[in-house]
């Protein structure tokens, strides 16, 4: 099941900041891995330390539904 990349593209628009590096998060490349499947996505990441942020709406929305679909494969 392919995840629509654009759906997963969350532009932080400077609303999020890495507390460790004190820099705003930027749109960056990330990957979700589950049960032997991998999905490239774009998520807010810290340009310095590379911390990847998964917002709550995403975790309980699309991520959860994809998890469930993969679990029933």
């Amino acid at each position: 099941m392919a995840i629509d990349r654009t759906y997963y593209s969350i532009d932080p628009e400077g609303k999020l900041q890495c507390m460790k590096c004190r820099v705003p998060l930027v749109k960056g490349k990330a990957k979700f891995l589950y049960l032997g499947n991998g999905f490239p996505v774009e998520l807010p990441v810290c340009p310095v330390c590379g911390f990847v942020y998964v917002p709550e709406e995403l975790a309980l929305g699309k991520v959860l539904s994809v998890e469930k679909a993969l679990e029933d494969k």
Binding site: F32, L33, V54, A59, L60
Partner: peptide, 29 residues
């Protein structure tokens, strides 16, 4: 994931928490 506020030195209040089973990693290229 835990959403919290730092109320003072060594004191925190947890406001929300959530989880997901998929593992997320940084991707190069």
């Amino acid at each position: 994931w835990v959403k919290f506020t730092e109320d003072g030195p060594d004191s925190y209040t947890v406001h929300r928490a959530y989880s997901h089973r998929m593992n997320v990693v940084r991707r190069e290229g």
